[in-house]
Amino acid sequence: MSEITIQDIIKPENLVYEKTKLMTDNALSYCPGCGHGTAHRLIMEVIEELGQENDTIGVAPVGCSVLAYEFMNVDMQEAAHGRAPAVATAIKRLWPGKVVYTYQGDGDLAAIGTAETIHACNRGENIVIIFINNGIYGMTGGQMAPTTLPGMKTSTSPYGRDVQSMGNPLKITELVSALPGTYYVTRQSVHTPAAVRKAKRAIKKAFQNQLDCKPGLSFVEIVSNCNSGWKMEPVQSNIWMEENMFPFYELGDIKVDGSLLAK
C-alpha cells in the first residue's frame, strides 16, 4: 500500500470547511483566545450566505476592533468613538437598499456612544448593531468599562469595581430592548462551538430582518472574553466568563419580532 500524501487529501470531496472570502488574509490584530475574530467571521459568513457582499457597508468603532475594516472584506467606514450608530443611520437612510451594520465594543456603545445607541434604536433605524461586551477597555490597556462587573479588577478599578462610587454595570441590551424601535434584541456568546452556531443563527436573523425591512433595529450582543485584559489564560477566561459574566449578562433572545419575551 502506497503512502498517503497531503496532496491526496486536498480534494474537493474532502472539504469540510472553507474560510469565507469576505474575511481578508490580513493577520488578525486580536490577542490569541479573544472572541473578536470569531465574531468577525460569523458576520462575514452571514453576509456572504445572504449574497450581500456588494451591497453592504460596515461601520467600525474605536476600541480593539478599530481595525475591523482590515479584516472584513466589504466597504467600511471607521467612525469616531461611539458615533457608529449615527454614521450608520445616515448611510441607511441615504441608501435604503443597502445592508448597513455597526460593530461596537462596550466602551464605544455603552459609555461614550450611549446617546447615539439609544436614539438610533429608538428611531427604529433599519440597521444591525453587533455589540461585543467583554466588560473591559481592551485597546487602551484594561480600564473599567460601563459593563465591568461589580468587584471586578481593572487598571482603573484596581481594588475591584465599587458600585457605590463607580456606578453599576450597565445592561444596555435590556435597556434598548425596552424601546419600541428595536425589533430583535439578543445576547449570545462565541466561546464554544455550540455557542458559535447559535450566535451565527442570531446574526443571520438580524441581517435577514434588515433585508426584509422589518420595522426596527436588530441588536446582537455577544458576551466575550478579554483574556489579556482580564489577565487570564484563554481557557481560564472562558471559564471565568461562564461563571461570572453569564449570570449577570444572561444569554438568549430578549426581544423577537418586536415582542419582549417573558422571563
Binding site: I57, V59, Q77, A79, A80, R83, A86, V87, A88, T89, A90, I91, R93, L94, W95, A115, E116, I118, H119
Partner: peptide, 17 residues
C-alpha cells in the same frame, strides 16, 4: 438628530457614501 455630535457623524456616514 439627537445632538450636533450625532448630526456631524451622520454627515460623516452620508458624505462617505
Amino acid at each position: 438628530a439627537e445632538s450636533e455630535v450625532a448630526s456631524i457623524n451622520m454627515l460623516y456616514g452620508g458624505g462617505g457614501t
